[in-house]
Design a binder for these strands. Structure first.
Lengths: 339, 339
DNA sequence: TATAGTGACGAAAGCGCTTACGAAAGCGCT
DNA sequence: AGCGCTTTCGTAAGCGCTTTCGTCACTATA
């Protein structure tokens, strides 16, 4: 674990005939150096192949300018796209990104945040739905508040109850769009395959759906399973085994919708002839499945980029929140109900 | 950028009534402390909510125990799954992972590796195909060699020409499997949609295919496009516009295969009735598309996990290479040729 | 000409930790 | 009791950088 060679800043300083302090100021673009001298030092550094030691910088300077990103599960396309957006935007700004994942375990988020804090990253972005119950958000909120007092920047994607910068998809409106589409087609008996009920994302989308269904006299049945393809399969089977006759099913995310399609196919039911299916998110693949999925598109990558933008903005004044729009993408999986 | 409070190791030492050195040894699990004293110190640290400062550790100790992962593009399911494998295995070992991406630009890999080295990460994993031409691998090889002399650990996924730990999918064998499957079905005119020809992954898979095709008297046409869904679409159109009549098409990865299916559909050609389609990788979604894709499964997540295992192994002796198997998954997209 | 004010720079004090190195204490042995 | 050995712990020297603080021209004001 040794680094035999490695030119240090003092080497650069010596070679440039200036003091260590001046070299440091020149490299960090600080004030107190004449422009020409700074330029000279930088040239020398370049020639010597000087690479700053981030640890030393972090130790001396406090937090270091890099971004820690906590995602639920990078294997999930939804989060992978968010991460992609973060990475792109961050690399534009020359910030490195450290990704950790909570493995779909909300409690693990706190652990990850602590780990990030211990690494003294300058910013933390948390991507993932929060709890509906504010009380459950409290521990994370406390940790983040403490972190902010130390100068850390924080942004969350998709959770409201934290008093920090946030970028929020309009899940309620997306729910309304999907529901309106379905009722407009004539569906009156609809099954909803939901994710874990305690999550914001789930309850917001569900509320959006319900606000339309209730006022249209739709008979809706809700089952809750894990927010995955398997959850979609299980949910579909549970719903149908219960004997609830539905003409349409909406899964609260596309991963589940994929499961729904699969389960329906296995049961010999045709989509959309026998039953329509709709989802949320518009992850990359749903346009290629058969039938192509109708879904409410959420701009995942853009949300990631916006989170970085929030963090990078000069002043850490009042927490700001950005609301993202959605777009209903109608494809082949939805049609008028049979008979 | 200040951290007002933050309990330091000396605080822990004081509270435990030991010296700073002893406290350090107790926390890092080093030798030279009695087990009971170490346990005592750790208890105090826990109670005080002590969080080690990674920068200080890195500065004092040289490299820090975390993993830097360079991927071509996390948006790509292939790399996302590899990353997922790395993350899982690393979190088991308590190592944090820093992900950077090369944005599909091989030259950018070197940049990323340099950035990682500047952060003094203890290990670097590079996921992505290398160049067929060893000369093009040289710069990266040099940087990595230097890094290793400083005590850094390196593993690459899917590239042979570097003298470091490597986990390699058996692309050649996978090519043979796919080709054998197709010729066994009776296909004699086959189109291949390849990715960039200079890449290992591409040439290995292509060689595997060719070794079978050549000995079976198959008439094969190869076109090369980008390794993406769009590349698959363009490749298919190019191939078909050229007027080469084929009864089967194999895309050198699933992303391209998805594009092939799409392009074929747009041209009104049925799969597999008019033309069979096969891919490589078995990314999560290809079992849900229509028709479900026949593909040579590569264990992406497992490869990521293995790379971490290589890096974590105690002794950094001779570079080791692990070869991963593949599995031909026959689904609905391949069938006997028409007439 | 004397005095305060300004900007550019250098000297040196840490940031929190790991790790030689040395001191002290316990052990078995002669 | 005295010897050398091992084990346990403390002292202190940095790791490479940022940043206060002070110094030293030099310019502006009276």
């Amino acid at each position: 674990m040794k680094q035999p060679d490695a030119t240090r800043l003092v080497d650069v300083a010596a070679a440039a005939g200036v003091s260590l302090a001046t070299a440091s100021r020149a490299m960090t673009g600080g004030t107190g150096v004449s422009d020409e001298l700074a330029e000279h030092v930088r040239a020398i550094a370049e020639r010597l192949g000087y690479v700053p030691n981030l640890h030393a910088r972090g130790l001396a300077g406090g937090l270091v300018s890099s971004i820690g990103l906590v995602v639920h599960e990078i294997g999930d396309p939804y989060f992978a796209e968010i991460a992609s957006g973060v990475l792109h935007r961050a690399s534009l700004a020359g910030q490195s990104v450290q990704i950790t994942h909570a493995d779909r375990d909300p409690r693990s988020e706190l652990t990850q945040v602590n780990a990030l804090m211990m690494q003294r990253v300058g910013s933390i972005i948390i991507a993932g739905s929060g709890y509906t119950d504010p009380a459950l958000e409290a521990p994370l909120g406390d940790a983040l508040a403490q972190y902010r007092t130390r100068g850390g920047r924080v942004a969350v994607i998709g959770r409201h109850h934290l008093d920090v910068d946030a970028v929020l998809p309009d899940n309620h409106a997306a729910g309304v769009s999907v529901a309106t589409h379905l009722t407009g087609l004539g569906h009156r008996r609809i099954g909803v395959i939901a994710g874990p009920l305690g999550l914001n994302t789930v309850s917001d989308r569900l509320d959006g759906l319900r606000s339309v269904f209730d006022s249209t006299g739709v008979h809706v049945t809700v089952v809750s399973h894990s927010f995955t393809r398997e959850g979609g399969i299980d949910g579909t089977n549970a719903l149908l085994d219960r004997g609830s006759p539905v003409t349409a099913m909406v899964a609260l995310n596309d991963a589940m919708a994929l499961g729904v399609l699969r389960a329906l196919r296995q049961r010999g039911m045709r989509v959309p002839e026998d039953v329509s299916v709709a989802g949320f998110d518009d992850i990359a693949v749903v346009s290629d499945v058969a039938p192509a999925l109708t879904t409410a598109r959420i701009p995942m990558a853009e949300m990631g980029a916006q989170a970085v933008a929030l963090i990078l903005r000069a002043e850490a004044d009042e927490p700001r929140r950005i609301s993202m729009g959605h777009e209903l993408i109608v494809r082949a999986s939805t049609a008028a109900p049979p008979d």
